[in-house]
Design a protein around this nucleic acid. Structure first.
Lengths: 108, 108
DNA sequence: TCATTATATTCTAAATTGTAGAACTAATAT
DNA sequence: ATATTAGTTCTACAATTTAGAATATAATGA
């Protein structure tokens, strides 16, 4: 894997960051993932993937202010970069193009 | 990874098998992959992924007849299973649903 | 203010996927 | 028979995915 590619889970998390906007921090992302997939995910899985995505330049992040809630460490808020968005769009378009070539599944 | 999931490369190969129909054998698949992606892929990568996909029940395969061409070993022809098709559709629909929730990218 | 509790991130390790290429097999033309 | 071509199998390693323990931080109540 010489090149910076986008794995399956990575793609979903990137999309989730885009969807969550300024609420995009690991715990929230994990919650959202579970509610959208009915699949359990460990918080560690989410964190390490978010890190990798940052190293690849698809995400940036900064610590947010402490919340007004009970307790808790400050959140790290993730933001998708222009490169991240581009890669996401490329992945989507490529799949779409493959589906269009699949006999009997042209629409869906 | 307790469950049988579908990785990124796996998904693409599965789709390619569907597209190639009765011409879906490793060499052809590799060729098709390269022509559709402008990305080099090793034949070994394709074979081992095809095997994994078969173990997961997403593909079946059988040896074809020897071709009328110059030389060569008999081809192993892959066919997508009902389960494979279902998993593929699920993956597509999930991504589509995420894109629809992405503000500013509703269409495309 | 200090222990407690809740919220999160970081760190460590292991399983699964992704990738490459050498070794091997079989058919045909010469 | 042997060289050539087409293709699969086998072996090994790198990257991604996953889980969970350890740690840090903030708010609250005594």
């Amino acid at each position: 894997m010489k090149e910076t590619r986008l794995g399956e889970f990575e793609e979903v998390l990137l999309l989730l960051v885009g969807i969550l906007g300024d609420e995009a921090y690991a715990f929230k992302i994990a919650e959202e993932f579970e509610s959208q997939t009915q699949r359990a995910v460990s918080i560690g899985a989410v964190h390490s993937t978010l890190n990798r995505l940052s190293e690849k330049g698809f995400l940036t992040s900064e610590m947010g202010n402490s919340s007004p809630e009970r307790g808790g460490r400050r959140k790290r808020i993730y933001t998708i970069t222009a490169t991240g968005r581009r890669v996401l769009i490329e992945a989507r378009d490529f799949k779409t193009s493959l589906w269009e070539q699949y006999p009997g599944f042209a629409n869906g």
